[in-house]
Simulated assay, not measured.
Amino acid sequence: MAHFATQAANAESEAEAEAFLGALIPLAAKVLPKAMPVIRKFGPQLIKGVAKVGRQLWNRPETRQLVKAVPSAVLKTAGDLAGQWADGKDISARRAIGTFGKNMADTLGAGKSDAVRATNQLNRRH
């Protein structure tokens, strides 16, 4: 996931960046198998949400490197939604996107440098 986010941040076009970021949702299901049912159900909506956020970050040179923070928000979202699903909560597409939006805002808030740093460290290891 870290590699794809870095590829997106360094992409030559918006479409290329979106392609790398869209792949984060299915990868999250592989990392967190318990999230598979909810990702299967809301994957297309989540991919659109991730692409939208990625596009907004990628289009501004001063925020382009923050694209590397997206995997942190995606993993947090997958975990949160899996927990809600396991608890029997009624999850809608709106709730799934809202959960991602909240996690992305939290990631870009206090911990943006931590999330980008973590992605950079994972990339260096692999």
Score class of each variant (00 low, 15 high):
residue 1 M to G: 04
residue 2 A to Y: 13
residue 2 A to H: 13
residue 4 F to G: 02
residue 7 Q to N: 09
residue 8 A to Y: 10
residue 9 A to N: 00
residue 10 N to E: 13
residue 10 N to V: 14
residue 10 N to R: 15
residue 11 A to N: 08
residue 12 E to R: 09
residue 13 S to M: 12
residue 13 S to Y: 05
residue 14 E to R: 15
residue 18 E to M: 10
residue 20 F to L: 06
residue 20 F to V: 04
residue 20 F to A: 06
residue 21 L to A: 11
residue 21 L to V: 13
residue 24 L to R: 05
residue 25 I to T: 14
residue 26 P to E: 08
residue 26 P to D: 01
residue 28 A to P: 10
residue 29 A to D: 04
residue 29 A to C: 10
residue 29 A to F: 10
residue 29 A to G: 03
residue 29 A to L: 02
residue 33 P to M: 02
residue 34 K to M: 02
residue 35 A to G: 06
residue 35 A to T: 06
residue 37 P to K: 08
residue 37 P to R: 07
residue 38 V to I: 13
residue 39 I to H: 05
residue 39 I to A: 06
residue 40 R to Q: 07
residue 40 R to T: 11
residue 40 R to E: 07
residue 42 F to R: 01
residue 43 G to A: 14
residue 43 G to Y: 05
residue 44 P to V: 02
residue 44 P to F: 05
residue 44 P to Y: 01
residue 46 L to I: 08
residue 47 I to G: 02
residue 48 K to R: 06
residue 49 G to S: 06
residue 50 V to R: 00
residue 51 A to E: 05
residue 51 A to T: 05
residue 52 K to S: 09
residue 54 G to W: 05
residue 55 R to G: 04
residue 55 R to Y: 05
residue 55 R to P: 05
residue 56 Q to N: 14
residue 56 Q to I: 14
residue 59 N to Q: 14
residue 61 P to G: 10
residue 61 P to M: 10
residue 62 E to R: 12
residue 63 T to R: 11
residue 64 R to K: 15
residue 66 L to I: 03
residue 67 V to C: 06
residue 67 V to A: 04
residue 68 K to A: 01
residue 69 A to Q: 10
residue 70 V to C: 12
residue 70 V to G: 03
residue 72 S to M: 14
residue 73 A to W: 13
residue 75 L to A: 07
residue 75 L to H: 07
residue 76 K to A: 02
residue 77 T to Q: 08
residue 77 T to A: 00
residue 81 L to H: 04
residue 82 A to H: 08
residue 82 A to Q: 02
residue 84 Q to F: 02
residue 84 Q to N: 06
residue 85 W to I: 09
residue 87 D to Q: 08
residue 87 D to T: 10
residue 88 G to F: 04
residue 89 K to H: 11
residue 91 I to W: 07
residue 92 S to H: 03
residue 92 S to F: 08
residue 96 A to I: 09
residue 100 F to Y: 14
residue 102 K to M: 01
residue 103 N to S: 13
residue 103 N to Y: 12
residue 104 M to F: 12
residue 104 M to V: 15
residue 105 A to N: 04
residue 106 D to L: 07
residue 108 L to V: 12
residue 109 G to M: 12
residue 109 G to R: 15
residue 111 G to T: 13
residue 112 K to C: 12
residue 113 S to Q: 11
residue 113 S to Y: 09
residue 114 D to W: 14
residue 115 A to L: 03
residue 117 R to V: 09
residue 118 A to N: 10
residue 118 A to I: 14
residue 119 T to M: 01
residue 120 N to I: 15
residue 121 Q to A: 13
residue 121 Q to I: 15
residue 122 L to D: 03
residue 122 L to Q: 08
residue 123 N to Y: 00
residue 123 N to V: 06
residue 123 N to Q: 07
residue 123 N to I: 00
residue 124 R to L: 08
residue 124 R to D: 08
residue 125 R to H: 00
residue 126 H to S: 07
residue 126 H to P: 07
residue 126 H to Q: 09
